[in-house]
Design a protein around this nucleic acid. Structure first.
Length: 421
DNA sequence: TCTGGGGTCCTAGGACCC
DNA sequence: TCTGGGGTCCTAGGACCC
């Protein structure tokens, strides 16, 4: 009878997580940091938070997302290091290349972690523990970095077990043992359960995943809606809901591109604020062009001294990838929503609702746009050569920016000039 | 504790259309 | 005129992740 009900074929998922990634990469560039309390993310007095802390620093209670100044108080002897995103990206690419030699289905979940679907690779790599051991060795050999590997029948189990395996370890949760493995863990260990959900669950007397698993699914759904249902599945180790269900390595195109800036000191200087918006718009526009996206929606983010934050968005009739169009929209939103005199802590610019191609209204418009694209591409090349600050669009020279007109629909200056310093 | 920067996903209300 | 129900798009905010 059971023959008709073959259970869903069990998958073998690896979650590979690099150990203290940013710190380890910095150690490659400066071996004297090894073994010391190191904090990556900025200097001890700066505004900002810890991106990564070495294991020696963690002993003092320092952890990522903690304000740098707090970290400095907890661990005065720590060495504070600025982050180097290019270095991390470069190492991340090496990590990816190593992983692709183990499975064709590799998915980088972030800069320092990946999922591999290892189902059916036993002939090539042996059973899971053997494969993981090989992976460890090859990773160290090719990148000089340590990682931890979690192995399970779902992404969730693989992810949770890699966290338990740290540092530099491997943990395999055998199929059938999922619930037993999860039961003694804090609910916070479940990916997707953050501070807020944790305290709501604590309020109900639910502290461990086992407590969660004992609850009726219907109760959870009633209390937390769609999320509650997913949560019930997660407590059993299932990839319930949303992204977790997707096949490993499924193509995930970007949905938004954004840049933001927090001032070292709050400011109400209008020209300074608008100059920042110009710079952020250029950065966003540049990345749109690099990825050949055209964005329909432009969003401004504004954070005040008291940390209250607003976002204001506008959707364009025609998608764009031009700095000037992004800037003119974002500046309009800014002028409508910022009261002069109010101190600003952070500004952000985001582009979303991507379309592959802008519609072309007319040949004339097309030609005009093309000239601008050529000019921007030239500016991008100069920035590659001489750095981000070397090229400013004429429009960025505060004050002389023209408003939208009929002849000049994007509010761009009349000629495709760039100005090099 | 005085709180970065880059993202994703979800919810909820209102506009608008049929 | 005293009022429905769905679908979709847009906007704003918030939880969460690394």
């Amino acid at each position: 009878m059971a023959a008709f009900h073959t259970p869903a074929p069990s998958r073998t998922i690896f979650h590979v997580d690099m150990d203290a990634f940013f710190v380890s990469v910095e150690e490659l560039y400066d071996p004297s940091l090894k073994g010391k309390p190191v904090v990556v993310g900025g200097q001890r007095h700066e505004r900002g938070v810890v991106s990564a802390a070495s294991y020696a620093a963690r002993k003092f209670g320092v952890h990522s997302a903690m304000p740098l100044r707090t970290a400095a108080k907890l661990c005065p002897q720590a060495i504070f290091v600025d982050g180097h995103p290019e270095r991390y990206r470069e190492c991340s690419e090496k990590v990816y290349i190593v992983l692709t030699t183990f499975s064709p289905q590799v998915e980088m979940a972030s800069i320092d972690e990946a999922y591999l679907d290892m189902t059916g690779t036993a002939r090539l790599h042996g059973p899971p523990l053997r494969a993981a051991h090989k992976l460890h060795q090859l990773m160290k050999e090719k990148t000089r970095l340590n990682c931890s590997v979690g192995i399970g029948s779902s992404r969730l189990i693989a992810k949770v077990s890699s966290a338990q395996a740290k540092p530099n370890g491997v943990l395999w949760i055998v199929s059938g043992e999922e619930a037993k493995f999860l039961a003694p863990l804090d609910v916070r260990e479940i990916p997707g359960v953050g501070k807020v959900m944790e305290s709501r669950l604590h309020g109900l007397g639910i502290k461990k995943v086992g407590d969660l698993a004992r609850l009726e699914e219907a109760d959870l759904e009633e209390r937390f809606g769609k999320w509650g249902l997913a949560l019930a599945g997660k407590a059993r180790g299932e990839d319930a809901g949303g992204w977790f269900d997707a096949e490993v390595g499924a193509d995930t195109a970007a949905k938004s591109i954004s840049h933001e800036h927090t001032y070292n000191e709050d400011t109400d200087d209008e020209s300074q604020l608008e100059a920042t918006l110009m710079r952020l718009s250029e950065m966003v526009g540049r990345r749109l062009r690099e990825s050949s996206f055209h964005a329909r929606t432009v969003q401004l983010k504004l954070r005040y001294t008291d940390f209250t934050t607003i976002t204001r968005a506008h959707s364009l009739p025609v998608p764009t990838q031009l700095d000037g169009e992004i800037f003119s929209q974002v500046r309009l939103l800014f002028r409508r929503n910022w009261k002069p005199g109010r101190q600003v802590r952070l500004l952000g610019v985001q582009a979303s609702s991507f379309e592959a191609q802008a519609e072309q209204i007319s040949l004339l418009e097309g030609g005009r746009q093309q000239r601008w694209k050529d000019a921007l591409a030239a500016a991008d090349r100069l920035r590659d050569k001489f750095g981000e600050s070397s090229v400013k669009l004429a429009a960025g020279m505060r004050g002389n920016f023209r408003e939208r007109t009929h002849e000049n629909p994007a509010g761009l200056p009349g000629k495709g000039q760039t100005k090099a310093k």
